[in-house]
Design a protein around this nucleic acid. Structure first.
Lengths: 335, 335
DNA sequence: AAAGCATTTGCATTCGTATGCAACAGCGCC
DNA sequence: GGCGCTGTTGCATACGAATGCAAATGCTTT
């Protein structure tokens, strides 16, 4: 049977002090005599006392909890973010409450749980908030930070990498490598990351006087990207370069080219991705890509959330962090 | 500034009922007249009221929260588990509180946070508990389930896949494929999963009258596994098959063989992994492996935790779930 | 030794919700 | 109409810790 937990009152009795004294031993900056503290800690130790975080939250009105909403953990990019974010918040005495949500409808029900949970802040990883939900959070004074989503909501902060410049670099790099029939494989049709990368990419091509050879959509999904690749390479004259909106799809492209279509990378087709996930560095792929600054993005998000929690002000800030081109074998300058 | 949240008392005032009535509207099976409920819900809606889960937890002594302790999220196998577990618990009205912990020392400090958090249960994913910590949880009546770790602690439950049989199948399969110089690449030296897989593997070899050609340790890490592979293949006579204790390392082996050593897989060397992570199915690898039943394992863990929470009894149960051999190109029966 | 000050302590209240108990209403039945 | 019954409701209290305020302690100073 579940034991009744030890309370501060019981510790107080054993130590011969008041409950307040016990409480003060466990809150920093509280006025307590060293000798008393020692007595109390000894008693606490003896009874196995742990302050009840729930009770503390109720009175301090702060749960020291951040709600994280994610749509996909199978993408290692977001898994890495989650891991790093967890460690980062842990350092500051906060913990992550995890919520998975695939679609916007599910997000609504999840958000209801979050509001009940009294989370001090909300971190959106690869998930989007509807306008009404965003408004509700802001109205309650709960800071929200979205990573890699661009939506203009009053009071909602955003941290993103410079997708436009990343896309621009890719376009430039491929043109300068001598590619002439360059295709783009988009992520989700309505995702801001994909469309920003695309825009930068197209602008680079235009500036160099090259037109985009073809476009397809891969939904950030392996199988869909494979199908899209087959379609792109069906014609007699096929692309000599493919820019996929993320590494995961770029890998799918490479595999499909090599295994199914018998084309060599990069000799016959150059492939570039985006994210720089660990797999991109593996010998079989050696994927040229654009690295997103995962840790910097999380650091920024952490700072934004903690700052707004501390100040009690929710401000919709917008941070864009620089990306780093990573040149590997899948698309080199000399062909 | 953070708004003061709406309380059940305010809803009660607006609806012209008592606070208790409001409370009863939000707890299932409570005695409340339909007409009253309607009035209250309307008032709640109008004020934007959400029950405060913290206050509720304090009185019900149940946080409806499960603490998850993980050491590595970069392994997609555990990322998948986490995602599925989150969805599973969400269905039951529970939420996951995430804790990252690399080593046993960190686990101790993390466990202190968990005990304070009043989590109703603890799920250990790829993380191990020291004996004293386990004892403390049991003493407090908090159910603990460890996935894929075998440690004999009174009152701690375990869910694992049948690592022994999986290893056995690999040994058998390789021998029957005609391999004669079979090497084993272990995970972490002290991990129970790795040693059980090894044992099954060795027993299969022995039964078929074959000795293990060589052993090395890869720490479940890509780079370490690469180095181990180089060492294994240094001699003039090198292995004609490698069984890596997980897919991640098997991929490293394949890449190293192909890219650095110029050996063909499976023609010159057969490679087998364990886990069946998504990458294993990619055309470049086509890795023969042993699939762990991720969903079944999580389902089992969920059932164990929720069952013990409901009954208030912590029982150290032990579940072993069957694995499924997946034959792909990296090690086929005919050579 | 008394007064003055700084530090420490305890008392009482508070956070927002759940729930046992008693009061109460509405209903059918004799 | 009185009785008993079922189904609702409100009252009061509890959960466990934090904190403003006042009382008490210890120490220095004159």
């Amino acid at each position: 049977m579940r034991k009744r937990p030890v309370t501060s009152q019981e510790v107080a009795n054993l130590a011969g002090v008041s409950q307040s004294a016990v409480s003060r031993c466990f809150s920093p900056n509280a006025s307590i005599a060293p000798k008393t503290k020692e007595k109390v800690l000894a008693a606490a130790q003896q009874l196995g006392y742990r302050p009840n975080a729930i009770a503390r939250s109720l009175i301090t009105r702060s749960s020291r909890t951040i709600a994280v909403v994610m749509s996909q953990l199978d993408n290692p990019f977001y898994a890495q973010m989650l891991e790093y974010a967890s460690r980062r918040f842990q350092q500051h005495g906060y913990h992550l409450l995890l919520f998975m949500s695939s679609d916007e409808q599910e997000t609504a029900s999840v958000m209801s749980d979050i509001l009940q949970s009294q989370a001090d802040g909300i971190l959106m990883l690869a998930a989007t908030l509807s306008s009404s939900l965003a408004k509700e959070c802001v109205a309650r004074g709960i800071p929200v930070v979205m990573i890699n989503r661009t939506v203009a909501f009053e009071g909602v902060s955003q941290v993103a990498s410079d997708n436009y410049r990343g896309g621009y670099w890719v376009g430039q790099h491929l043109v300068e490598s001598g590619c002439e029939r360059i295709a783009f494989l988009a992520g989700l049709a309505d995702s801001s990351t994909s469309s920003q990368r695309r825009q930068g990419f197209l602008d680079a091509l235009t500036e160099h006087g090259v037109a985009c050879w073809a476009e397809a959509v891969g939904d950030y999904d392996f199988a869909t990207a494979q199908a899209a690749t087959r379609a792109l390479f069906k014609a007699d004259v096929y692309p000599d370069a493919v820019f996929a909106a993320n590494d995961h799809m770029a890998i799918a492209v490479i595999d499909t080219l090599k295994a199914e279509l018998g084309l060599q990378v990069p000799n016959e087709v150059a492939v570039v991705g985006f994210d720089n996930i660990p797999v991109a560095a593996w010998p079989s792929y050696q994927l040229t890509t654009v690295q997103q600054p995962i840790e910097a993005m999380v650091d920024e998000a952490t700072a934004l959330l903690l700052g707004q929690i501390a100040s009690g002000q929710v401000t919709g800030e917008r941070k864009v962090l620089p990306v780093t081109p990573i040149v590997r074998d899948s698309a080199r300058s000399q062909r």
